[in-house]
Design a protein around this nucleic acid. Structure first.
Lengths: 220, 220
DNA sequence: TAAAATATTTAGACTAACCTAAAAATAATT
DNA sequence: AATTATTTTTAGGTTAGTCTAAATATTTTA
């Protein structure tokens, strides 16, 4: 049974939505995530259900089957490994790699991705701090927390970003925020929940609540 | 104007056929090269002509326009650079990389291929000895000759293979023939035009006429 | 709980890229 | 040069993946 690029993209979208909300994934959420008409989604859900990649009940939303989950996981592994390659080996910035990885993840070839993984030294996180499942589909978990939840005086190492959009990432570059830096929360302004932080013991910056909510750190 | 993967594949096929025979490229040659029905080729030729990528005269065959030629050259550049990457960096054998490169060459992104080229150190030849056009589309030419044309006593350095099929390449691996080795032609048997050669001053092997015709060397 | 609002599916249509079979043009041969 | 053979195109059809508009389910709200 062959699987098309379009089908792969739906599986990935369903996986990502299911990750956040733990109810069944609804047609409209998928349509929104993929920028397609709801009717197109319905069509595709029927096809995916016929291939036993999702469980689909009319009007009730969908859930990935074990096989669907396995394929989505492989896809995410491929996407993130290619992102590591693009940043680490080709020197792209972290805000430039998404569209390329989106294409590269669909290249078919069992051996390719494992050789790439090996070439890259089996990285466990991508350039945005997202975990990369291993060849058996196992995830690495970390105890991270949003900067918006730190208390004044608490420190953390920046391990991830929740928003991957270019403007956000470029803003972080500009104020000197990158994965691995140490953040010390100095003060929170009650009025707008913005926070003052010290970066790696040097510069100080103010982050809006929205920015602070999009930064993950490991405490301490 | 967007260009699809299918269109790219036709352009590349036309380029490669035109390279060998210097008349106009006929519908049936394309159909044969691409394993498609002639009627499908006619369809596509109309589309490519509308996009000004080929000059098409009914029943008379086609020719690439300047733009079509440019695109085909970029495609070959991409294919061969990816092949170098797969062999040099990921450790694939030279007979394993064609299908992967066939997919990778369609990944879109101006910066990608130039960064890859840079990462690989601007290689001028791929793992089969085929030239890689540079970023401006310029080719490197070499004065190579088929082993079948060497005279007894003549030497050459193996610089390319004409047949890229897996069985042929694996046969070469098996008898110790690889790019860069020195070949000394010891003797040609008149009866079947097979040749006896010495490889890098060590082992001796007999090559059939067909094999000798598929090996390129630079004399001396 | 009935009406209104929202979400989902169905119906019908489109495009790219293929196909087979038949028709038409070109090339080869007697 | 006329017939035969070959090549190419046209005609008509298929599938995947999309769309809009209309119909139908479900959920929310008054």
């Amino acid at each position: 049974m062959t699987i098309t690029t379009a089908e792969e993209n739906y599986l990935k979208a369903i996986f990502k939505i299911a990750e956040k909300e733990d109810k069944a994934v609804l047609t409209n959420s998928i349509a929104a995530a993929m920028n397609t008409a709801a009717a197109s989604v319905t069509d595709m859900l029927k096809r995916l259900a016929e291939k036993h990649l999702i469980k689909y009940e009319k009007y009730r939303g969908v859930e990935l089957t074990e096989e669907g989950n396995r394929l989505a996981t492989i896809l995410i592994r491929k996407h993130r490994l290619w992102e590591v390659f693009l940043v680490e080996k080709l020197g792209f910035a972290w805000d430039e790699v998404h569209d390329l990885a989106e294409q590269l993840e669909h290249v078919q070839g069992e051996a390719l991705i494992d050789r790439l993984d090996n070439f890259l030294g089996h990285p466990r996180f991508d350039p945005h701090g997202d975990p990369i499942p291993d060849a058996q589909g196992r995830w690495t978990f970390r105890q991270q927390v949003r900067v918006s939840l730190l208390q004044p005086g608490e420190k953390g190492i920046l391990t991830g970003v929740d928003d991957h959009a270019t403007p956000f990432l470029q803003y972080l570059d500009q104020i000197g925020v990158a994965l691995g830096i140490e953040l010390l929360l100095l003060h929170r302004t009650e009025y707008d929940q913005s926070v003052q932080v010290r970066i790696s013991g040097k510069t100080e910056v103010t982050l809006s609540e929205k920015v602070a909510q999009n930064l993950f750190v490991i405490r301490g």
